[in-house]
Design a binder for these strands. Structure first.
Length: 115
DNA sequence: CGTCTGACGATAT
DNA sequence: TATATCGCCAGAC
């Protein structure tokens, strides 16, 4: 075990449901780390476990750059396998897939009031 | 024990 | 929207 801090992070990440994604900052907050998102990223880098780390992305809705480019492709592939689609720019719609806010509520403005 | 680095985030420009 | 900077913590040396 690396430390309680990391363990806490791993627990949160393990809770992310398939088809949803969470940001590093969001996880840091849920783990009681405040806004220290960097620790989440570093923890995941050192996890080396069967964690769904691919469901964790940065606040821009993109897959963060890392030392291993190969891992980026793997993450994108895994997300796609779970139904998370990517933009042409490689961005994900956080509004749509963000963990805890993925409630389908299109609310289509069918007819705007003209009064 | 000092220094550097890293899978981030928010703010300013 | 993209780029530049700073802050923050935990490991590796």
């Amino acid at each position: 075990m690396a430390s309680d801090t990391y363990e806490r992070i791993y627990q949160i990440v393990d809770r992310i449901p398939a088809g949803s994604v969470a940001t590093y900052g969001q996880i840091a907050r849920l783990a009681g780390l405040g806004g220290h998102a960097r620790l989440v990223g570093y923890a995941l880098h050192a996890c080396g476990r069967s964690l769904p780390w691919h469901r964790v992305i940065n606040s821009r809705g993109q897959i963060s750059d890392r030392s291993n480019p190969h891992s980026q492709g793997l993450q994108a592939r895994r997300l796609a396998a779970e139904g998370v689609t990517l933009d042409e720019r490689g961005r994900i719609s956080l509004d749509r897939y963000r963990w805890g806010e993925n409630d389908p509520q299109p609310d289509p403005w069918e007819e705007p009031p003209t009064s």
